[in-house]
């Protein structure tokens, strides 16, 4: 392949899925790809981090154990404050979601790494798992009372004509927004990073005259990098806290 600035600047190629091991299962292509590989890396890193940190169980924790316990406390507080004591049943689920997404996002920050959360199928599946959990828990816990969610009590009857469709639409939009928010943030962020970084390199290659502009682009790249680290943490947090909020709706559908 001939190197060309245009190729270097292609911000889309980083999202390309490539087969590492060809696998088939009942007519489906379940090949182990670079996406699967980096997902596996994230899972292994989460397990390694928390496994090693939790193994000793010291009363006076090491730095690693302290960090793991802070993560534990952070998610536990989040679940408790957003879905109440009852929500703690779903603490492992929210914990898994948060660290799965956080590690996927952070691994994506390493140059040449694949960002698993930049694929809508992945974020969509995660969002669906949340919504399915919410609906199943809501129906099991409240029976048909779960549908009170669409008609919050305390409003005059004519308000419900407008309110109920809005509530239904907003409920149906939840998996979509949950999936799209994470997907679009990761995708857009990585495209921007690649564009500015590639632009800086291309400008240096184009001649010394463009050096100041190249430096400007490089500076933008550095700033965006910092921003993307923030986004990586923030989006994992948003995904987890929205999960807690939705679970709260399922657990306390009749309360409002």
């Amino acid at each position: 392949m001939i190197f060309s600035p245009a190729l270097a600047l292609d911000p889309i190629s980083q999202f390309k899925v490539q087969k590492w091991i060809d696998l088939r299962l009942g007519g489906f292509d379940i090949s182990f790809t670079n996406a699967s590989g980096f997902m596996l890396l994230g899972v292994v890193l989460v397990i390694a981090f928390f496994g090693i940190a939790a193994r000793r169980g010291e009363l006076v924790p090491s730095r690693l154990q302290s960090a793991a316990e802070m993560g534990f406390g952070f998610i536990a507080d989040m679940v408790r404050s957003s879905s109440g004591e009852e929500g703690l049943k779903f603490f492992p689920f929210v914990f898994t979601l948060f660290f799965f997404i956080l590690f996927a996002n952070l691994i994506g920050m390493v140059p040449y790494a694949f960002t698993t959360t930049s694929h809508i199928i992945v974020t969509g599946a995660l969002a669906m798992s949340v919504i399915v959990t919410v609906v199943v828990v809501g129906l099991l816990k409240n029976g048909l009372g779960f549908f009170k969610l669409f008609a919050p009590s305390g409003a005059p009857w004519y308000i419900y004509i407008i309110l109920t469709p809005i509530e239904i639409i907003s409920f149906l939009a939840r998996p979509l927004t949950l999936a799209l928010r994470l997907f679009a943030n990761m995708l857009a962020g990585h495209i921007m990073l690649k564009l500015f970084a590639g632009f800086a390199v291309a400008l240096v290659g184009a001649g010394t005259i463009y050096l100041p502009v190249a430096l400007l682009a490089f500076g933008m790249g550095v700033a965006l990098n910092a921003l993307e680290f923030l986004v990586a943490g923030l989006q994992a947090y948003v995904f987890a806290i929205l999960t807690c909020v939705y679970l709260n709706d399922a657990l306390h559908a009749g309360d409002h």
Binding site: D29, T33, S36
Partner: peptide, 8 residues
């Protein structure tokens, strides 16, 4: 790649 993504 979607089946493979979902599977893994």
């Amino acid at each position: 790649h979607m089946p493979s993504q979902l599977f893994w």
